[in-house]
Computed example of a mutant assay.
Amino acid sequence: MDPLHAPFDPVALAVPFFVLTIILEIALTRFKAVKSHYETKDTMASLGMGLGSNVAGLLTGGAAFAVTVWVWNHRAFDIPMTAIWAWVALFFLEDLTYYWFHRLSHERRFWWAAHVNHHSSQHYNLSTALRQTWTGVLAGTWALWLPLAFLGFPPAMLAIQKGISLVYQFWIHTEAIKRMPRWFEAVFNTPSHHRVHHARNPRYLDSNYAGILIIWDRMFGTFQPELDEEAPRYGIVENLTSFNLLRVAFHEWAGIAKDLAGSRSLREVIGYLFGPPGWSPDGSRDTSATLKAQWDAQQAAKKTDLAA
């Protein structure tokens, strides 16, 4: 097997499945056979973002691949693509890498700017999974996978496993499936877990960063179960009012540029770039942490009122 060129692309192979299941979910929704919500403009925006992401990848992905190959050429070990143990090890290591990539993409504004478009839909259905970034390569988060290349995992293996992860995550973007069996919910990322991740309810913010395995969230304290008494409300804290693809793709980058133009110190520059989304020098804007704190205070006040 060629260590530099994957013999197949999991995502490309799955595209017909993506299209057919989206059509099926829409049809079942129309007949009220499943719970789901589709809006034509929103769905078209998601499909447009998916197409644009593929184009952006073709234009910018070569540089990331070249760096990955260079790192692999200076690898510490030789890991054979034909060894089963290597694929098992890569499954866990790649999924752990994805967890930290995903967490970083939510907790630091520079990388959130490249990821926020995926959360910009106020609906949650299979088409939402296709609402992918146009600027991910430029944001540089692909560098988090370079240590795996340095260890000796061939670039082709990395490409296949990353593709498998992306294909897996497609089916969890749905409201049609309420819960999987308890053992499955305990180990794997599921529609229930990922609905929480896409919710803008203060209780649910910044949680469930899993790719395939939810165990990382359980290990690192970011797991939040979906609660029957609180249905997820989807989108971002300040929802977009436009389906314009350029606005969907670049609105947070434009916000960063505006804030940087008004910065008055190096501290403000660093804060606007690498602080949590919503950071401001005077604390006048809400971050996930402040929204959660406000929600906690409201819940405590309600309990006090009930006790009185």
Rank of each mutant, 00 (worst) to 15 (best):
L4D: 13
P7G: 11
D9Y: 11
D9V: 14
P10K: 06
V11N: 07
A12M: 13
L13R: 12
L13I: 15
A14M: 08
P16E: 13
V19G: 09
L20W: 13
T21W: 06
L24F: 02
I26K: 09
L28S: 10
T29G: 15
A33C: 09
H37N: 11
Y38I: 09
E39C: 00
K41Q: 04
D42G: 04
T43V: 11
A45N: 05
G50W: 02
L51S: 09
L51K: 00
L51P: 01
T60H: 04
G61S: 08
G61F: 06
G62C: 03
A64L: 06
A66N: 07
T68Y: 01
W70M: 12
V71A: 03
R75W: 01
D78P: 04
P80L: 05
M81L: 15
T82G: 15
A83D: 14
A89S: 15
L90W: 01
F91T: 12
L93T: 10
T97F: 06
T97N: 13
Y98R: 00
W100C: 10
F110M: 10
W112F: 10
H115K: 02
S120Q: 14
Y124V: 04
Y124M: 07
L126M: 12
S127C: 12
A129M: 11
R131I: 08
Q132S: 11
T133Q: 08
T135F: 15
G140A: 05
T141C: 03
T141F: 04
W142L: 06
W142P: 03
A143M: 14
W145Y: 15
P147E: 04
F150A: 08
A156P: 03
M157C: 09
G163I: 05
I164E: 00
V167C: 09
Q169N: 15
W171I: 14
E175W: 03
I177Y: 08
I177H: 13
M180T: 04
N189P: 12
H194T: 07
R195E: 04
R195H: 02
H198D: 05
A199W: 00
N201V: 04
D206N: 14
Y209G: 09
G211T: 02
I212D: 01
L213C: 07
I214T: 05
I215Y: 04
D217L: 05
D217Y: 01
F223A: 09
F223I: 10
E226S: 09
L227D: 07
L227T: 02
D228M: 00
D228F: 01
D228Y: 00
A231N: 01
P232Y: 00
P232S: 07
T241Q: 12
S242T: 15
N244V: 04
L245W: 03
E252V: 06
E252Y: 04
W253Y: 11
A257Y: 06
A257S: 10
K258W: 02
G262M: 08
G262Q: 12
L266W: 10
L266M: 12
D282I: 06
S288H: 05
A289D: 14
T290H: 06
T290S: 15
A293N: 12
W295C: 10
Q299I: 07
A300G: 05
K302P: 00
T304K: 11
D305Q: 11
A307T: 10
A308G: 11
